[in-house]
Amino acid sequence: MTGTTRDLLQHPEPGDRWLVAVAHPDDESFGCGSTIAHATTRGAEVTVVCATRGEAGEPAAELPHGTDLGSVREVELRRAAGHLGVARLELLGYRDSGFDGACGPGALCSAPVDELAVVLGRLVEEIGPDVVVVLDGSDGHRDHLHVRAGMRAALAGSQGPALYEHCLPNSLLRRWLDEMRSVRPDTAYHGLDPATLGRADEDVTDVLDTTAVLDRREAAMAEHRSQTSPFDGLSADLRRAFLTADHLARVDLSDHHA
């Protein structure tokens, strides 16, 4: 692209390196799977780093007695990564903190942000990514927020990779809430404040049309059999709205300090 600066997010090419950092197995598929596939199908080399093995997740069905959920979810993660075209997968070995309650020793949220930033920073230095992607944590899960904080700290003041936070815009989640109120009127969804859902639409800096990689995303999500898909039960139109466009917010690293 002579005379212009290529948009590395929208137009990945062979030779580009991406680093995607998530908290749990399935975040890479249910969360930003289409973004990953968008990059890999265009030739970028994508490394996924997963902080935990998802030990505190809630199984979709009862597992056989003695089954280690973390081991099951790691296998699911590796299979899903294959569908998405991931070149390298790294697990950091922290324990899943769970959504709430006390964080035990070794849990991701028990690790100081500065410590996590050092671990992530070493990977950034080794891989030399052009693009880094994390989930924005607007679902409120403390592990998602912790990975985001760790990566922001790792890249603070950096002139290196572009950092994007994968997010769900408020307007889309309002559609979801309206549908949940119709199809599941007896659940707690009706008590949610629509204004607090997801990311403000004006904060979204990039939208990727991921229609072309929908099959890869679907195949990756299907590998996470131990978990309930957040897209189960949605109308066809709303499910497609979630899965054929990915929303991201570019982070101005000059605003963040180590």
Rank of each mutant, 00 (worst) to 15 (best):
D130G: 15
D130W: 07
V131Y: 04
V132C: 10
V132Q: 00
V133D: 02
V134F: 11
V134M: 03
L135W: 06
L135H: 04
G137T: 07
G137C: 01
S138R: 14
D139R: 01
G140D: 09
R142Y: 03
R142G: 02
D143V: 06
D143S: 12
D143N: 11
D143T: 07
H144T: 00
L145R: 15
H146N: 08
V147H: 00
A149W: 02
A149E: 08
G150I: 11
G150M: 08
M151F: 05
R152H: 13
A153V: 09
L155D: 06
L155F: 10
A156I: 07
G157K: 03
S158C: 11
S158R: 01
S158F: 01
S158H: 08
Q159S: 15
G160Q: 03
G160R: 04
P161N: 09
P161F: 05
L163M: 04
Y164I: 04
E165C: 13
E165N: 05
E165G: 00
H166Q: 11
P169T: 01
P169Q: 05
S171G: 03
S171V: 00
S171A: 14
L172W: 00
L172F: 01
L173H: 01
R174Q: 12
R175C: 10
R175W: 08
W176A: 08
W176F: 08
W176D: 02
W176I: 02
W176Y: 12
L177T: 10
L177G: 05
D178R: 14
E179A: 06
E179P: 03
M180P: 02
R181S: 11
R181G: 14
S182G: 13
V183C: 13
P185H: 05
P185T: 07
T187I: 03
A188E: 12
H190G: 10
G191R: 13
G191D: 13
L192V: 04
D193M: 07
D193V: 03
T196E: 12
L197T: 02
G198V: 01
D201M: 05
E202R: 15
E202T: 13
D203R: 15
T205E: 03
T205F: 02
T205R: 03
D206K: 10
V207L: 11
T211H: 15
T211D: 15
A212Q: 12
A212M: 10
V213N: 00
V213Q: 06
L214M: 10
D215F: 08
D215W: 11
R216S: 15
R216Q: 14
R216Y: 09
R217K: 15
A219V: 13
A219Q: 13
A219I: 11
A219S: 14
A220I: 01
A220K: 03
M221E: 12
M221K: 09
A222M: 12
A222E: 15
H224V: 04
R225T: 13
R225S: 14
Q227L: 06
T228G: 11
T228F: 09
P230H: 06
